[in-house]
Amino acid sequence: MDRRDFIKGAVGAAGLFFASRYTRALPVEVSVTLVRDPACVNRGVVDVPRAGMLLDRLLREHFNAANPVEILRTLFSPRDRIGIKVNCLSGRRMSTHVELVDALVQRLIQAGVPPRNLLIWDRLNSELREAGFTLNAWGKPVACAGCNGLGYESELTMHRSIGSLFGKPVTELCTIQINVPVLKDHGVVGLTLGMKNFFGAIHNPNKYHPNGGDPYVADLYSHPDIGGKVRLTIVDALEVQPEGGPPFQPNWCMDYGGMMTSADPVALDRVGWKLIEDLRAQKGLPTLAEAKREPKYIHTAALLGLGEDEVASIRFREV
């Protein structure tokens, strides 16, 4: 597989799905890959080597290539300034796991990305800290900071239903984003996963939760500085929570030992929704629709041309 084939089949999120809005006839295969290793996590304690191996397996399986570092080398150049968007709202347990991000950072550096070009970021410094990340100023090797420390643009961005100040990680600091969301139920919008994760990039996310986040989640993601810069999404499903989210709820949080990826942000959210529904059914919980919090924004995103929300049209592989 050469670089051209590789990107055609895999990258998508940064360009293909924005392009696909205007070129729906392109034969872009929509695939979502989930890998699992139940021994990877035990009540929140992550087996670091196994987490690294699971990440490698995810990359190999999804991109159909042997060497994870080479895959990343194909996806990213040393000139890219890469933001790694984590989700740290829920403290140590139901946030993006530090161990997964560490494994990703190691491989990016091995792939030739200078450590000074890496920024782990979320909304607040305090939330990053509480999730176990160590803050490090922008410009230092592998920076880690919240938008409150890095700053917001002073000019309002108006885009569809959104009127917000964008955080500098998505505007001036980074040229590319790697999205590393967690898979969990959300008490207001139904599901918080890949697209919703970028609510952490704006100054006023509280204004965009009414109506189940619809159309706001999709509208925000459709902005070129948001979805348009996402080149890779790695879903952290080491632990998942099918009920009681977004905060960590010990009675609903479960070891899952999973990681998932797709080039299609809508397909990824749609599959994540299905996985949550399956777990809810196993636990005798009502569906999200019955709980009156069906994540309608996923369908809206599909209507915007951001990706595929028909389950039958998504090639889902659990490996």
């Binding site: 829920s90 403290g91 008490g187 207001v188 509280n206 204004k207 977004p246 905060p247």
Partner: peptide, 25 residues
């Protein structure tokens, strides 16, 4: 239930989960 609260200050009646804020921010 589940550490969730309902704000009854304004007619919006935000349901706010732990570590979250209402519409007002």
């Amino acid at each position: 239930s589940g550490r969730r609260i309902k704000c009854t200050l304004c007619p919006r009646e935000c349901l706010v989960d732990d570590r979250e804020r209402g519409y007002c921010g």
